[in-house]
Simulated assay, not measured.
Amino acid sequence: MSRNSIEGKVVLIAGGAKNLGGLLAREFAGAGAKAVVIHYNSDATRAAADETVAAIKSAGAEAVAFQADLTSAAAMEKLFADTVAAVGRPDIAINTVGMVVKKPMAEVTEEVFDLSCAVNVKSAFFFLKEAGRHVNDNGKICTIVTSLLGAYTPFYAAYEGLKAPVEHFTRAASKELGERGISVTAIGPGPMDTPFFYPAEGEDAIAYHKTAAALSPFSKTGLTDIEDIAPWIIFMVSGGWWMTGQTILVNGGYTTK
């Protein structure tokens, strides 16, 4: 199999039932992936997972879905073990899991901080750990972070601050896994037009975000569209493999580093 091709590859997507993850699952199947494994978090997402599995199979690829709360190391180990048992070792592993918190630091409770840390830091670390153990040589690993990593802003300390460690995890993993030909990257989208974005934002903030990017006038919503992010991820886990250890902000000029 070509290092630059999706065809014949096994793909694992954490958070792959809907939104960006669901689009990626369909795109990989359409690009000739042998199998696409999707993870979803809760029963509320089961119907979307079933729809995505059906779409993958319709495109001619094998498909399976696993439900899990990935905030424990044991659950992450099981996800990768179940993937290997079902379709073989993955060639590509993508983590789209995240939790947005927008609050002044004075209003962030210990409970909210701990949950955000578990979702945004702990699960990302153990995803990279298990991907490093299970992904085939010459494989690709990509984590979704946030373009807020390049911002100077209030209210997102418990989100952007807890996505920031993933940059360091990405660099370390790329060094540790480079001798096996595995590239490791992180993609930081701008605020995306998905159901995850709107609950955390007030009307004024939504209006601002819809005009904040240099290319906002050319977006369907003014926000980052998942259709504009998916090609970057697909490129980074195929022809763009020579880029490794990097966090790339893809946001239409919303912010930069």
Score class of each variant (00 low, 15 high):
Phe80Glu: 08
Phe80His: 10
Phe80Asp: 04
Ala81Gly: 13
Ala81Pro: 04
Ala81Lys: 05
Asp82Gly: 03
Asp82Lys: 06
Thr83Ile: 01
Thr83Cys: 14
Val87Ala: 01
Val87Pro: 01
Val87Thr: 07
Val87Leu: 08
Arg89Phe: 01
Ala93Met: 03
Ile94Val: 14
Asn95Ala: 00
Thr96Ser: 04
Gly98Gln: 04
Val100Ser: 00
Val101Asp: 02
Val101Phe: 10
Lys102Glu: 10
Lys103Thr: 00
Lys103His: 08
Lys103Asp: 06
Ala106Gln: 12
Glu107Tyr: 09
Glu107Ile: 08
Val108Met: 09
Val108Leu: 09
Val108Gly: 01
Thr109Ile: 08
Thr109Gly: 13
Glu110Ser: 06
Glu111Val: 15
Val112Leu: 13
Phe113Met: 14
Phe113Cys: 05
Phe113Ala: 14
Cys117Ala: 11
Ala118Asn: 02
Val119Thr: 10
Asn120Gly: 02
Lys122Arg: 15
Lys122Glu: 00
Ala124Tyr: 00
Phe125Gln: 09
Phe125Trp: 06
Phe126Asp: 01
Phe126Glu: 05
Phe127Met: 12
Phe127Gln: 12
Glu130Cys: 07
Ala131Asn: 03
Arg133Leu: 12
Arg133Pro: 12
Asn136Cys: 11
Asp137Val: 05
Gly139Val: 06
Thr143Asn: 09
Thr143Ala: 07
Val145Gln: 05
Thr146Lys: 00
Ser147Pro: 01
Leu149Ile: 07
Leu149Cys: 03
Gly150Lys: 12
Ala151His: 00
Tyr152His: 04
Thr153Trp: 04
Phe155Val: 15
Tyr156Gln: 03
Tyr156Ser: 03
Ala158Pro: 08
Tyr159Cys: 05
Gly161Ala: 08
Leu162Ala: 04
Leu162Gln: 14
Lys163Ala: 03
Lys163Leu: 13
Lys163Ile: 07
Pro165Phe: 10
Glu167Tyr: 01
His168Thr: 15
Thr170Asp: 02
Thr170Ile: 04
Arg171Tyr: 09
Arg171Trp: 07
Ala173Phe: 01
Ala173Lys: 03
Ser174Tyr: 05
Lys175Ser: 06
Glu176Tyr: 04
Leu177Ile: 02
Leu177Cys: 06
Glu179Ala: 14
Arg180Val: 13
Ser183Leu: 05
Ser183Lys: 02
Thr185Glu: 04
Thr185Ala: 06
Ile187Phe: 03
Gly190Trp: 00
Pro191Asp: 03
Met192Ala: 15
Thr194Gly: 08
Thr194Arg: 07
Thr194Lys: 08
Phe196Gln: 11
Phe196Asp: 02
Phe196Thr: 12
Tyr198Asn: 00
Tyr198Pro: 03
Pro199Trp: 09
Ala200Asp: 00
Glu201Lys: 13
Glu201Ser: 13
Glu201Asn: 13
Gly202Cys: 11
Gly202Asp: 15
Glu203Lys: 15
Ala205Arg: 13
Ile206Ala: 07
Ala207Asp: 11
Ala207Val: 09
Tyr208Pro: 01
Tyr208His: 11
His209Leu: 10
Thr211Gly: 12
Ala212Phe: 05
Ala212Ile: 06
Ala212Asp: 07
Ala213Ile: 07
Phe218Glu: 14
Phe218Asn: 11
Phe218His: 15
Phe218Lys: 15
